[in-house]
Design a protein around this nucleic acid. Structure first.
Ligand SMILES: Nc1nc2c(ncn2[C@H]2C[C@H](O)[C@@H](COP(=O)(O)OP(=O)(O)OP(=O)(O)O)O2)c(=O)[nH]1
Ligand SMILES: [Mg+2]
Ligand SMILES: [Mg+2]
Ligand SMILES: [Zn+2]
Length: 639
DNA sequence: GCCGTTTTCGGCCCGACTGTTTTCAGTCG
């Protein structure tokens, strides 16, 4: 069983527990466990088989370890099956609709017999939903819209698509009245390979006009919501764009909040609580002693100030503090400027000094307040970066500037669109020290694979270009196909004469896992091989990864001294961040290659570097961050 | 259900927007 399948089962349990109105912290425990499994660089199944102690993993305790073991051993989970018996099929699906959560889903089912999205649509059209207590015409209309959205666009957007799409919005927002700062936050800033929505953050003294300007964006089909500090619009292609606006003094805290990830935020805020601090998107606050327990039941003091108090005060107060009180505080905080008779029992003027603001103008303020080093956005996934930052042991992540060359590039000799000379010149312009020309081998006939005698001619051309274009080394390479039996698609005498050999699977992608794993390991075991390219073959949103025991492949690569590629094509990003992280742990070098098929594609390097950073890679982990002389030595040593 | 420079019990992030409400639950970021 794969990690994603285990994670899916645990998430399903969480959804069903939520529908059954279980303790929200228990629900979260299942989601946290799922996240751990999904972000794990190793196969949990293998860990179980090896008898390793799963309870050492974060968010995995006695129960979760047992559930995971059961899943691995039997392929089933009794806990899940029991819940499926008790909760009607389809209700979990209803929760995927925007604006429909566990409570509404359950009520729709209990009061209208709705248990599928189709049922819900019928009920809305029949006018049944709007008659429900707490529902109405508007919410029914909203649900109808949510159903349309759900059916239209299920998948997430590629990061590169988001990059395109964001440009005109940024251009529009730069003209917003009074805007002082503007940045894309969320998963986009963390450079996640796919993006659910675009999260924009702006700073302005007066947020109102900025929100209005945003809502008037010509590319929007509708405004989903708009309040005094935030708004959501929907673009023609279905992409949602969130805007949050704060005052400049809150810029850093807001950027931290809106960059996420959610799990990272929760962990950092919890560290704050343990240090007597409250961290939110407005800043970092310390509550004075007199401001704690006594004042808390009363209504809020507006944004940021509506603090819940010191850890000690919190402890004594939370017990006697009802949920109603909590929400009352929040509701009053909603419109602090416009509500004159704020909370129910607010005794103004209060003599106490109120919470002390410790910072929040800069993002570093948040980290410093809890004793952490600054964490680069790409690492903020709660995959150990918080603990590493507390120990001051964060890696020094590789940067685009560290990259000295590109080791997988195609030309017109196979399926590339630009000549060797053009590719070399473009590489030189990027400041590279070297570039490898790696056209396809014969078996990849659809991509114009080169036969050995073509290769001989190509080398003459490479020599000619190398003489003509000074200041960059041009390596003679090939992207050699790993055939179905694991042998390489080029005779040894030719392999030996290449400067660099990149190997990859391009056919028979549907093999069962053990066969595919044997095939790839046999492929890289050939002594002439330097780099394993796009190991899973996945195309994001289009083609599933091949079934491969990545752990076994990476262990073999470590033993053989073969490098593994992060293919920087934005629809590949293969290996992904999680596997690249495992490679690093095993001491496998990573080659970040653009697999460019035109000079323009060379810029994809940035996408590869982003994924490398998400994998915690440093310069020394990256093959093509080596200077030429070291690279040449490494290439020769492999022989 | 997990977890422990404060704990093996009692905590678990914190705030905005909507709709329908007359005081806030639900959902989402
Ligand atoms: N503190 C806190 N912050 C949250 C919570 N939910 C979301 N955020 C923050 C962190 C997120 O990165 C950011 C944007 O929310 P999104 O739902 O758009 O998530 P994100 O962009 O990370 O992923 P996405 O690709 O959009 O699915 O808002 C939460 O429950 N608590
Ligand atoms: Mg987002
Ligand atoms: Mg968002
Ligand atoms: Zn290829």
């Amino acid at each position: 069983m794969e990690n994603v399948e285990i994670a899916r089962a645990l998430n399903q349990v969480a959804d069903l527990l939520e529908l059954r109105n279980e303790n929200p912290f228990k629900v979260r425990a299942y989601r946290n466990a799922a996240r751990t499994v999904e972000g794990l660089s190793r196969r949990v199944a293998e860990m179980v088989e090896a008898g390793e102690d799963l309870e050492e993993l974060p968010a995995i305790g006695k129960d979760m370890a047992a559930y995971i073991t059961e899943l691995v051993r039997t392929g089933r989970l009794k806990r899940l099956e029991e819940l499926e018996q008790r909760v009607p099929q389809g209700l979990a699906e209803l929760m995927h609709l925007e604006g429909v959560g566990p409570k509404k889903a359950m009520r729709l089912h209990e009061e209208l017999g709705v248990s599928t999205v189709a049922d819900l649509e019928k009920a809305i059209r029949a006018g049944e939903v709007e008659t429900l207590r707490g529902f109405g015409r508007r919410s029914a209309a909203r649900m109808l819209q949510a159903i349309r959205d759900y059916r239209r666009h299920g998948t997430r957007f590629k990061l590169s698509e988001a990059d395109q799409l964001v440009q005109p919005i940024l251009a529009h927002m730069r003209n917003a009245p009074g805007i002082e700062e503007l940045e894309v936050a969320g998963s986009y800033r963390r450079r996640v390979e796919t993006i659910g929505d675009v999260d924009l953050l702006a700073a302005a003294r007066k947020p109102g006009p900025v929100i209005e300007h945003f809502a008037a964006y010509p590319g929007a089909t509708r405004v989903e919501s708009a309040g005094p500090t935030r708004a959501t619009i929907v673009l023609h292609n279905g992409m949602h764009v969130d805007l949050r606006v704060v005052k400049p003094e809150s810029w850093g805290a807001a950027l931290h909040y809106f960059t996420g990830s959610k799990a990272h935020n929760i962990k950092v805020r919890w560290l704050g609580i343990q240090r007597g601090l409250k961290i939110n998107e407005y800043g970092i606050f310390r509550e004075t002693a007199r401001d704690g327990g006594a004042a808390r039941g009363t209504a809020a003091r507006g944004k940021g100030g509506s603090t819940r108090g010191s850890a000690a005060a919190r402890k004594s107060a939370t017990a006697r503090r009802s949920a109603a009180q909590r929400t009352a505080g929040r509701a009053a905080a909603r419109k602090p400027a416009t509500r004159h008779k704020a909370g129910p029992t607010l005794p103004r003027p209060r003599p106490h000094p109120g919470p002390v603001r410790l910072g929040g103008a800069r993002e570093e303020d948040v980290f410093r307040a809890v004793g952490m080093d600054f964490v680069p956005p790409e690492m903020r996934e709660d995959r150990g970066e918080v603990e590493a930052a507390l120990r001051h042991e964060l890696p020094r992540l590789v940067t685009l500037e560290d990259i000295r060359g590109d080791l997988q590039v195609h030309s017109t000799w196979s399926d590339g669109r630009d000549t060797i000379e053009a590719m070399v010149r473009a590489a030189k312009e990027r400041g590279y020290e070297y570039i490898a020309i790696t056209d396809h081998s014969p078996a990849v006939a659809v991509a114009g694979g080169l036969r050995p005698r073509d290769l001989a001619r190509q080398w003459k051309e490479i020599d000619r270009v190398a003489r003509k274009v000074k200041g960059i080394a041009v390596l003679k390479g090939m992207e050699v196909d790993i055939l179905a039996d694991g042998s390489l698609d080029l005779p040894d005498e030719w392999l030996e004469r290449l400067d660099i050999v990149v190997v990859a699977v391009h056919s028979r992608m549907g093999m069962p896992q053990t066969k595919m794993t044997d095939r790839v390991i046999k492929g890289i075991s050939h002594p002439g091989v330097h780099i394993l390219a796009h190991p899973t073959g996945r195309i994001i949103n289009r083609r599933e990864p091949v079934r491969l025991d990545m752990d076994a492949v990476l262990e073999a690569a470590a033993e053989l001294g073969v490098a593994v590629e992060i293919n920087a094509q934005p629809d590949r990003l293969d290996v992904n961040d999680v596997h690249a992280m495992r490679a690093r742990e095993l001491g496998v070098l990573i080659a970040i290659d653009t697999d460019a098929h035109s000079v323009g594609d060379l810029r994809y390097m940035a996408y590869g570097v982003s994924q490398a950073r998400r994998a915690w890679l440093e310069k020394r982990n990256v093959l093509n961050a080596m200077p030429l002389t070291r690279l040449e030595k490494w290439l020769a040593k492999r022989r």
